[in-house]
């Protein structure tokens, strides 16, 4: 049932050319070079340290690795990460 709904939403988004992060509850990650990462629409912070950030997103996790991490702002569903970003990985679950 859940799979069918998801497939339908993907098709719906493609046909009407809607922004996918809205309809599919996917995270939107904006990066400025390797110094800023702006993550919207995440579903919770799991781990944060000066070298690693792990966020729960729809259907998995986002892991960002680097150095000197500071969370510049943290509002409800948005996070602005500052630091020396080296690696962004998606982990499906």
């Amino acid at each position: 049932m859940k799979k069918i709904k998801e497939k339908f939403m993907t098709a719906f988004t493609r046909t009407f050319d809607l922004p996918s992060e809205v309809t599919l509850e996917l995270p939107r990650i904006t990066m400025i070079g390797s110094i800023h990462a702006y993550i919207e629409n995440h579903q919770g912070l799991i781990i944060f340290s000066s070298t690693e950030l792990l966020l729960k997103v729809h259907q998995g996790h986002v892991r960002i690795k680097g150095e000197d991490f500071v969370l510049k702002t943290m509002i409800d569903k948005d996070i602005l990460l500052e630091g020396n970003i080296k690696d962004v990985t998606f982990e499906q679950s």
């Binding site: 919770g44 912070l45 944060f48 000066s50 500071v70 969370l71 510049k72 702002t73 943290m74 509002i75 409800d76 569903k77």
Partner: peptide
């Protein structure tokens, strides 16, 4: 801080 964000308490400069 994650909990704070859920309760609509904006925070910043988290280290």
């Amino acid at each position: 801080f994650d909990l704070c964000a859920k309760y609509h308490i904006p925070s910043w400069d988290i280290k």
